[in-house]
Design a protein around this nucleic acid. Structure first.
Length: 507
RNA sequence: GAGGCCGUAGCUCAGCUGGUAGAGCAACAGACUUUUAAUCUGUUGGUCCUGGGUUCGAUCCCCAGCGGCCUCACCA
C-alpha cells in the first residue's frame, strides 16, 4: 500500500479517469512557460477583460472554485500565485478534463491575460494540461500547515502551503549568493576542505564519529575547517573562504542544529581590524539589501527580530571584553586572585583546578554575556583572555590578551574572528598545554603535528573570520528558531508505522 | 540531562467536576458562467499519541513511555 491516507483511493480513481481520457497523469516536458509573476505583469492599464497578451504558466493548484460552466483556479509557482479562469465556452472539447482537475494537482495553462469583473488578473485558458496528478491532498488551504513537527518532517508541505516559509528559504539562498559575490569582489577564492577528518580540530566541540570500511579507520565529522584553510594560506592561497557544514555533537535548541553552515575565511597580511571591517561591511550590506527588499527606504537599516528591532547601520558598537567583565562581574579581569574569588562566590564548581582564563570565560558567560542581548545594535566584543584562544595571536604589548573579537547580535554569537597565530613554536606549546590540562572533550584543540609542520614552513600573518550562516539568516529573516532557516533540521526519526516489517532490509 | 507546556477526523481547531466526541476546510453525491478561504443542499470520515492504574464508567484524573515546542544545562 502506497498510502493509508483516507483520500488516496479517491484520488487514485481520479487518476484512472485521466488515463481513460488518454492523458498521462505524470505528464512531460512543458516548453514556453513563464512565471506567474511575469504573466501577471502582462496585464497593464487598458488591458481588456478578455485579455490581450498570451501567457503560459504552470504550478500547483492551491484554490479551486467550480461554478458549473466556469472554474476559477489559483495556481502557485515559485514566483507566487495567479488566477486561471476556465470556461466551457473557451475549452469546449477539453471541458471533461478541466472538471477532473483538483486541489494539489500540478498543471499548465495557456491563454490571454485579462481580468474578471472584480479586477482580478486572470488567464482565460484556451489550453491546459495535467503535468502531475497529486495522489495526496495538500494541508488546509487557508491555515496552511502549522504543526511544527510536520513542517520540519515534511518540509515539502510547509514550502507548498506556507508562503512565508518559501520566502525565508528564497532569502537564504539570495543572501548566500550575496556573500559569495561580496567575497569574490574582494578577491577571495572559494574552496572545500575535508568534512571527514582523522583528527577533529579548530574548535572545542564534541565531534561525530564515523568509520571508513576499506581503510578500516575511524573518522570524525569536522567541527571546523580552520586548520585546513590555514594550510592553504601556507600554500599560497592568500584569500580563501569556505561556506559549508560543520558538525557538532552537542545539544539542540533554537540556536543550535547538529549540522550547521559556517562561512570561514582567511586573509593573508590582514588582522583583527581587517576582519572587523570586513564583517561590519558584509553584515551591514546584507541587512541593507534585506531592508530594501522589505520596502525600507533611506539610510537607516533597522530589521525586526522577535520582540526587538536591530539597527544594522555601520559602525557597529565596540566594547572590550575586560570592560564588560568589570561592569558585570565587578572585578578587574587582570586580578587573578580577585577572579578566583569571584568564581568561588558565584558558585562555579572546581575553581581550584581550572585555568584562570577558563574561570574568566565562565564568569563572562554567566554574568556579562546575558547583557549583550539588551543592545539593539550589533556589538563587537574584543580583547579576549589569551587562554581561551589557542589559535590566536597575542595582543602586542599585552600577552594576557588575544587579538580576537566576537560579534553579538540580539545576544547571539554571530561571528568570531582573530589575528591568526602563525608562530609554530607558540602554537606547539599552546596545543601541548591545552592537551595536558583538560579532558579531551574540553581541550581547546588537539595536537595536530602536520598543522605545526605547516606553520614551520611559514604562514603569512593573517586575519581569520567565522560567521554562523544559519544565525545570520535567522537575524535577517526574523526567524527565532534555527529550524526555520534549515530546510531539514535534525529530529528524532519518526516512529515506524506498525504495518512495516521491522526486519525489512534498508536499501 | 532538568523543568514547563502540548499531542482529539487528512488539515486547522473546539470540547468534557468523569457518562466512549463536534465545527470549518478537504473528500463523496448534486446545483451554479465572474468567484476570491466562492456559495447552497445532502453524505462519509475518529486507536481522542501509546501502555498501565483509579473508577460502575477515562479523551478528561494518576503513573510510565513515545514525539514535539519552550526555558535551562551542554556549546569557539
Amino acid at each position: 500500500m502506497l498510502s493509508d491516507h483516507p483520500q488516496f483511493t479517491e484520488r487514485h480513481n481520479r487518476l484512472e479517469k485521466w488515463r481513460a481520457l488518454g492523458v498521462d497523469p505524470f505528464g512531460q516536458r512543458c516548453d514556453g512557460l513563464m512565471s506567474a509573476a511575469d504573466a501577471r505583469a502582462l496585464h497593464v492599464d487598458g488591458t481588456p477583460h478578455e485579455g490581450a497578451e498570451n501567457a503560459k504558466v504552470a504550478g500547483r493548484i492551491m484554490l479551486l472554485r467550480d461554478i458549473g460552466k466556469l472554474i476559477f483556479i489559483t495556481i502557485q509557482d515559485s514566483s507566487g500565485r495567479l488566477q486561471i479562469g476556465l470556461t466551457k465556452q473557451l475549452l469546449a472539447a477539453e471541458w471533461d478534463k478541466a472538471k477532473l482537475l483538483e486541489l494539489g494537482d500540478i498543471a499548465w495553462f495557456a491563454g490571454k491575460v485579462g481580468h474578471t469583473n472584480t479586477g482580478e488578473v486572470t488567464i482565460w485558458a484556451t489550453a491546459f494540461g495535467l503535468s502531475t496528478k497529486a495522489l495526496l491532498p495538500l494541508p488546509d488551504k487557508f491555515h496552511g500547515l502549522t504543526d511544527t513537527e510536520l513542517r520540519y518532517r515534511q518540509r515539502y508541505l510547509d514550502l507548498a502551503a506556507n508562503p512565508e516559509s518559501m520566502a525565508t528559504f528564497q532569502s537564504r539562498s539570495g543572501m548566500i549568493a550575496e556573500i559569495r559575490s561580496f567575497l569574490h569582489a574582494r578577491k577571495f577564492i572559494e574552496v572545500e576542505t575535508p568534512m571527514m577528518q582523522s583528527m577533529p580540530g579548530g574548535a572545542a566541540a564534541r565531534p561525530f564519529l564515523t568509520h571508513h570500511n576499506a581503510l578500516d579507520i575511524d573518522l570524525y565529522m569536522r567541527v571546523s575547517p580552520e586548520l585546513f584553510l590555514k594550510r592553504l594560506l601556507v600554500g599560497g592561497m592568500e584569500r580563501v573562504f569556505e561556506i559549508n557544514r560543520n558538525f557538532r555533537n552537542e545539544g539542540i535548541d533554537t540556536r543550535h542544529n547538529p549540522e550547521f553552515t559556517m562561512l570561514e575565511l582567511y586573509e593573508a597580511y590582514s588582522d583583527l581590524a581587517g576582519m572587523m571591517e570586513l564583517t561590519e561591511t558584509l553584515v551591514a550590506t546584507l541587512a541593507k539589501k534585506e531592508a530594501q527588499r522589505s520596502g525600507q527606504i533611506g539610510d537607516a537599516v533597522v530589521l525586526p527580530y522577535g520582540e526587538r528591532r536591530i539597527n544594522y547601520t555601520a559602525p557597529f558598537m565596540r566594547v572590550a571584553y575586560g570592560e564588560l567583565f568589570a561592569t558585570h562581574v565587578g572585578v578587574d579581569m587582570k586580578d587573578a586572585s580577585a577572579v578566583r574569588a569571584a568564581a568561588h562566590k558565584h558558585g562555579l564548581a572546581n575553581t581550584g583546578g581550572k585555568d584562570a582564563d577558563v574561570l574568566r570565560g565562565e564568569l563572562f558567560e554567566h554574568l556579562a554575556e546575558p547583557s549583550l542581548k539588551e543592545f539593539d545594535r550589533p556589538v563587537f566584543v574584543y580583547d579576549y583572555p589569551a587562554g581561551l584562544c589557542p589559535l590566536t595571536r597575542r595582543k602586542p604589548g599585552d600577552p594576557s590578551l588575544a587579538e580576537r573579537f566576537e560579534l553579538y547580535v540580539a545576544g547571539m554569537e554571530l561571528a568570531n574572528a582573530y589575528t591568526e597565530l602563525n608562530d609554530p613554536m607558540v602554537q606547539y606549546e599552546t596545543f601541548s598545554s591545552q592537551l595536558a590540562g583538560l579532558p579531551d572533550h574540553e581541550s581547546m584543540a588537539r595536537m595536530d603535528h602536520d598543522f605545526v609542520t605547516a606553520l614551520c614552513h611559514g604562514m603569512p600573518p593573517a586575519g581569520g573570520l567565522g560567521i554562523g550562516i544559519d544565525r545570520l539568516i535567522m537575524l535577517l529573516t526574523n526567524s527565532t528558531s534555527i529550524r526555520d532557516v534549515v530546510l531539514f533540521p535534525l529530529l528524532r526519526p519518526a516512529p515506524r508505522p506498525a504495518a512495516d516489517d521491522p526486519s525489512a532490509p534498508i536499501a
